[in-house]
């Protein structure tokens, strides 16, 4: 069982982990920060040359790369900062207003 399944606002102090330790890595992956967005990037795959210049500039690891190619955005984590759109030399990322 992952610690995020039982450690929340309602947990009894006796059930939290000693020393506030957790015994697994990368649990933040389950946390949604996508709802912070004001602007949302759109990936225009047909304009993309797969140079990957958009990938290191993302603070939220929200541009997945598989076998040397980027995929569409991870919208669960993307905060809409727009850095990737500026880093793209080919106009393959455009920022738009998020529709809620």
């Amino acid at each position: 069982m992952s610690s995020i399944d039982f450690i929340n606002e309602n947990v009894n102090w006796k059930n939290i982990t000693p020393g506030g330790e957790i015994y697994e890595g990368g649990t933040a992956d389950e946390f949604c920060t996508g709802d912070w967005r004001v602007d949302v990037p759109e990936f225009l795959a047909e304009k993309c040359k797969q140079c990957l210049l958009c990938t290191p500039v993302c603070p939220d690891a929200a541009i997945p790369v598989k076998d040397g190619k980027r995929l569409d955005f991870d919208f669960k984590h993307c905060k809409g900062c727009g850095i990737c759109a500026k880093a793209c030399p080919f106009g393959a990322i455009v920022m738009k207003k998020e529709e809620k």
Partner: peptide, 29 residues
């Protein structure tokens, strides 16, 4: 560069740093 960017992420998304934070870009890379 392509190999480096294809490596598994060691700093996942879902952290609460600000949108566009430079510190996170540094740590991740």
């Amino acid at each position: 560069f392509k190999e480096i960017m294809s490596r598994p992420e060691r700093l996942t998304g879902g952290h609460r740093m600000c949108a566009g934070c430079g510190g996170t870009i540094a740590a991740r890379n």
